[in-house]
Simulated assay, not measured.
Amino acid sequence: MGVFTCRRARPRGVRGWITPLFATCVALTQAIATPHAHAQDPTRLTIMVSGTAKMIYLPATLAQRLGYFRDEGLEVELLSQPAGVDAESELLTGFAQGVVGFYDHTIDLQAKGKEVRAIVVFSQVPGEAELVSTRLPATVGTMRDLRGHTLGVTGLGSSTSFLTRYLMAQQGLSAADYTMLPVGAEHSFAKALRSGRIDAGMTTDPIASRLVRNGEARVLLDLRTLESTRAALGGPYPAACLYLQSEWLEAHPELATKLAHAFVRTLRYMHAHDAEDIAAHMPPEFRRDHPELYVKALAAALPTFSADGRMPDDGPPTVLRVLAASNANARSKLLDPHIDLSRTYTNKFVDQVRERR
């Protein structure tokens, strides 16, 4: 079945000099050892997932649990990072061969002179919801009403921060009108909301549905359906995907084809089975104390997942527009002709899978 590993993000705070020194030594050891190991056996791959428990990234774990990587002759290790910005760092250092994260990072990285490319798109919506604590009065009913409040995101430079900036800017608010606080995802996000560190924030299922069900939060803005995503962002927003460094992709097209085939098989499986069957393949800790709520949230999410892994034609321009509007400092680099969207994704590998069918 392969290897399933959930690795925590590296600590950001400084707790004396021993902890960061130890973390640095471990990171250097991994960076040195991993390329050597992969050089010995190129079919052993490491993929960073921007939160393995997040429902939007479910195809990664499902592909492994179904044995689809193994069927392709690959040994894939999935490692979890709560924020996409941390996962992309592991890719750029060469520690990982791929990232399951948001497509918007491919555009953001190109603006910074880095070339990565999405080869399988999982969905056309972010799968995120802006939640507001029920401690706040019911009069807080729009993003504009969050002026002066502290908003939680997974990390600074993460997709949730891009979307938050854009949605607030659409309401005529600048970054000075609110505080954006990185609080991670899943349980760390819930803890921050419960403790009052944040008043609202953007997160995914299953934690979003759990907080709403518990009466701890209500949905202020929903980006979990295509209709609501089009209304809020002006078009489809391809989000969860598999992306790879372009240089690695060009050097290992056969491995990329195998990965694409495993993921497209997974997406087809998801469209051919119900939520209860799919949930049964997930690790028990993903469902935790409310398995029926997990199944319900998954059933609602299933229609948003792609059946073929292709990038929609109108998706990349929407993402570019959102990024340019959300980041004033990088706007000039994100606007044409500086960004070549054709270099941020390719349908070549998923099309090959369709031809093999």
Rank of each mutant, 00 (worst) to 15 (best):
V76H: 01
E77N: 14
L78P: 04
L79F: 00
S80R: 04
Q81N: 11
P82W: 14
P82T: 11
A83S: 14
G84V: 02
V85R: 01
V85G: 00
A87E: 02
E88D: 08
S89N: 09
S89C: 07
S89Q: 09
E90Q: 14
E90K: 15
L91E: 02
L92C: 04
L92S: 03
G94H: 07
F95E: 09
F95D: 01
F95Y: 14
Q97E: 10
V100D: 03
G101C: 09
F102R: 04
F102C: 06
Y103S: 04
D104T: 10
D104N: 10
D104C: 14
H105I: 05
H105K: 05
T106E: 00
I107M: 13
I107S: 02
D108L: 10
D108S: 13
L109W: 05
G113S: 03
G113F: 09
V120I: 11
V121G: 01
V121W: 00
V121H: 13
F122C: 07
F122A: 07
F122D: 00
S123L: 04
Q124C: 08
V125Q: 02
P126D: 09
G127M: 05
G127R: 03
E128G: 02
E128L: 06
E128D: 14
A129Q: 15
A129P: 02
E130L: 14
V132Y: 06
S133Y: 07
P137W: 01
P137T: 08
A138H: 11
A138C: 08
T139Y: 00
V140N: 00
T142R: 11
M143A: 15
M143W: 12
M143V: 13
R144P: 06
D145T: 12
D145N: 13
L146H: 02
L146Q: 03
G148W: 05
G148A: 04
T150I: 10
L151V: 15
L151K: 09
L151E: 06
G152F: 08
G152W: 05
G155A: 15
S158F: 01
S159M: 12
S159I: 08
S161Y: 03
F162A: 01
F162Q: 01
L163S: 01
R165A: 14
Y166L: 07
L167Q: 07
A169H: 14
Q171K: 11
L173M: 15
S174R: 00
A175F: 10
A175I: 12
A176T: 12
A176H: 13
